[in-house]
């Protein structure tokens, strides 16, 4: 029983290492999600609510939800393009000079 308690209160070094890594990963994921949320909010507000009235109209809501989907799509296109460019440049840099 006391062994069990001790192992529960002081995790092994390997467990603590995994914990640190997991914390770092989730912090970064959270920061990414927040950045994306801020950006979509900002961009879609500009596009879809040009003249704010007393409430969001149906057409504004439709626009906002499409805008959100399109911004995510744009993010994915940029991501694919940039990452393939990075790997291409890396390949060129490692290839012998012709």
């Amino acid at each position: 029983m006391s062994d069990f308690l001790r192992s529960a209160s002081t995790p092994s070094a390997s467990e603590r290492k995994q914990q640190v890594m997991q914390n770092v990963r989730s912090e970064i994921m959270l920061a990414n999600a927040q950045e994306l949320l801020n950006k979509t909010n900002e961009k879609c507000f500009v596009k879809c609510v040009p003249k704010p009235s007393t409430s969001l109209s149906n057409s504004e809501q439709t626009c906002l939800s499409r805008c959100l989907d399109r911004y995510m799509e744009a993010f994915n296109i940029v991501s694919r393009t940039y990452i393939s460019r990075i790997s291409k440049e890396r390949l060129d840099a490692s290839a012998p000079l012709s």
């Binding site: 970064i28 920061a31 990414n32 950045e35 994306l36 950006k39 961009k43 879609c44 596009k47 879809c48 626009c63 499409r66 805008c67 989907d69 399109r70 911004y71 799509e73 744009a74 993010f75 296109i77 940029v78 991501s79 940039y82 990452i83 990075i86």
Partner: peptide
Amino acid sequence: ARVHSSIHQFTSMCWDKCITGTPSTSF
């Protein structure tokens, strides 16, 4: 994280440049 932050930056910039109309159901 640096790559990701560049992707955020490019998305924002290229969105402003390329998406001029009202967002539709697909690009």
